[in-house]
Amino acid sequence: MQSRYTTLTVTAGLFMLLFLAGSLQFDGFGSTRVFANLFSDNAFLAITAIGMTFVIISGGIDLSVGSVIALTGVACGLLIGQYGLHPLQVFPIVLIGGALFGAGMGALIHYYKLQPFIVTLAGMFLARGLATTLSEESVPIDHPFYDAVADFGIQLPGNAWVGASTLILLAVLVAAIVLAHFSRLGGYIYALGGNAQSAQLMGVPVARTTIAIYAISGFLSALGGIVYSFYTFSGYSLAAVGTELDAIAAVVIGGTLLTGGSGYVVGTLIGVLIMGVIQTYISFDGTLNSWWTKIVIGLLLFAFIALQKLLTGKRLLSANGTREFSHA
């Protein structure tokens, strides 16, 4: 039990260390403004990664999230632009759509005993394909509501701006913490990831839980897609390529065990912030190129997986990479 907090502490410590290092090195890095921007710039990723956290805690994986973000954006653009619906009418539609998409994948995974990896891979193709079919071009979103959202926010001291996307992220975070630790479903998810067989024997409704997990992930990806469209004022079928990997990396850096059963939503948020700090550091530095971000994130991923292994000792060894997705 203690080891879980250890990873979380290491993650939080690393974030503070990186932020401190940046602040000491560059003028203006250690400001509330930069800190607030970490949230607003990465809100869509954080929201998506929070959904991914539940999936990974349950012992699964969801590769479709990036495509769902793109599909949501394109759907929003078309429904608002071509069909003249108000964004507030469109959002429930795409959110429910995202949840149903996830639920469908969850049902395939549970009822047909297919591996989450391959089902969500197919889901990734399907969502990306649907988005491309709807529109190959970028669909601009031009609506007074979007302008209002962009203007909405709270001014903090130090020229920091807490915008709508940050507020949505914080709301999702609170909801996710309540779901994970103060609800029955949350308990089921942890139980399923700890040991699917024991969970079933203890009376966890595996079917309902599995479907709910992927529905949550689909819902949050769609929400991430809406937030993403707030930045770009458009929907594009090739948007957010590779977000699924960033989300998985954030979850792992946040201390969630890849074997399932253990992890914290807060850790994932800090994981996203760490990735954001690295990006900010590189843009402040100016001489480093953006591809260093990928290399550093890769190294961090390795370091955290090695740390997980060290802390959990034999547990990962026994999994030994052969049957990690087995539901049986």
Binding site: N289, W291, I297, G298, F302, K309, L316, E324
Partner: peptide, 26 residues
């Protein structure tokens, strides 16, 4: 190290493109 294959290879999938860009100097 006994890491799950999907995750172990994910590391290189993420970092590998960075390395290739590094070699090509972007």
């Amino acid at each position: 190290l006994g890491i799950q294959p999907i995750v172990a290879t994910l590391i290189l999938m993420v970092a590998g493109r960075g390395i290739a860009q590094l070699i090509n100097a972007g």
